[in-house]
Simulated assay, not measured.
Amino acid sequence: MNIVISGPELGTGSASSSEVDDVLLDAYSSTVVNVAKKVSPSVVQIKVSGQPQPARQPAQRGRTHEGDGTGSGFVISTDGYLVTNNHVVAGASTIRVVLPDRDELPATLVGRDPATDIAVLKVYTDGLRAIRFADSGKVQVGQIAIALGNPYGFQYSLTAGVVSALGRTLRSESGRLIDDVVQTDAALNPGNSGGPLVNSQGDVIGVNTAIILPAQGLCFAVSSNLANRVVGKLITEGRVRRGYLGIAGQLINLTERIRQYNQLTARTGVMIASVEPDGVADNNNLRQGDIIVGYNGHEVATVDDLHKLLTDSTIGRSAQVIVLRDGRKRGVMVTPGELTGN
């Protein structure tokens, strides 16, 4: 069956131009256009000054030049709370937010979390439009992913792609791994950092955080579920609390003989290089040279495993650490303190 689309120039009874446009726009285009209309009023540009130049890293996050920086953010409440990346605002002496209507306002830093590269700002104005976090646990590989932000300082830009992978990990500037990272091929550029990655309903599924410059189509966003939890902590407490053992550790391979003798499944552990007697944590039972292989009933194979286990719920609570000492497994008690200056 042939379908003929007639324009006004083809005679009477023809479709209006708006009707023709509606037909010509396929479902994908319509989705992206509708998302752009819904989300764009909530996306802001962030300008900072007095910021130190960071060391170059494989996952580039976008700075202009020393002392100046630019990034993106988005409104999560009508009373002025904004979400962006920690690396966009870290160390800045002044932070200003450019709204979609081009109004430029001073912003207050509410809190930041280097471990997840999330920060919250506050501006004081009326008429803001907020967007909401979606449940990233329901995100599927292959679904539409739309990134919005201000690449290279250009006011407002949109790119579209798909969710390429879920459950990735990414090393933050603090040295910790960010878990539950969403990978997308929606193009990001320096300045997109802190902008929203949204689904086809215009709800946030991630906070754009990094690109890998030598690669094509490898872009990453902190998942909305993780970002939402961190944002809540930053708004209510100004920080995210984490446990601290007061040790320096390094990955070490375990010999097959040691593993079999101690009935260990992991091939690695965390060897304690030094113990800091700073009084923050009760770590007197730990010794330099101990190899940590378990914490509070959980296996520990890497430093990252230990970081994941040292949550705010561990602070001030005694727990058993399983270590290898003189080649034999034994349990010692510790009480984590609170990590500060993170």
Rank of each mutant, 00 (worst) to 15 (best):
E19N: 13
A266E: 14
R239Q: 14
H298M: 09
K233L: 07
G191Y: 05
R229H: 11
P100I: 00
I46W: 04
D203S: 11
L213Y: 10
T116N: 10
L197V: 02
I178K: 00
E66A: 14
T116F: 03
T236D: 15
L286F: 09
G73P: 07
G191D: 10
Y124T: 14
N228D: 10
G232F: 03
V240S: 02
A134E: 04
L170C: 06
S318D: 15
G67K: 06
I272R: 01
Q288H: 05
G167M: 07
I76Q: 01
S193H: 06
S30W: 12
A115C: 05
D113A: 07
V240Q: 00
Q250W: 02
V222T: 11
V323D: 04
G246L: 08
D22S: 15
G243R: 05
E256Y: 07
G11M: 09
V97M: 07
R317I: 13
T125Q: 02
L24F: 15
V83A: 00
A130S: 02
R56F: 12
T70E: 10
Q155C: 03
D326C: 10
L310E: 11
S49I: 12
S200A: 14
Y81S: 01
R168P: 04
G175Q: 10
Q263I: 06
E276W: 10
R112G: 12
E338M: 09
P196C: 03
G67N: 09
T116E: 06
D305M: 05
N85A: 08
R132W: 01
I211K: 04
V32I: 15
L226M: 12
A92Q: 09
G62H: 01
G246D: 10
S157P: 09
E256L: 09
V275M: 04
S17G: 03
G327N: 11
G249C: 01
A119G: 09
N285T: 07
L309D: 01
S157R: 06
L188M: 13
L324G: 00
S174N: 07
V332Y: 07
G327T: 12
G331L: 04
L226D: 05
A186E: 06
A221G: 03
G331T: 11
V4C: 06
A107K: 04
R330S: 13
T335F: 08
V280I: 15
A15R: 10
E9P: 00
G149K: 03
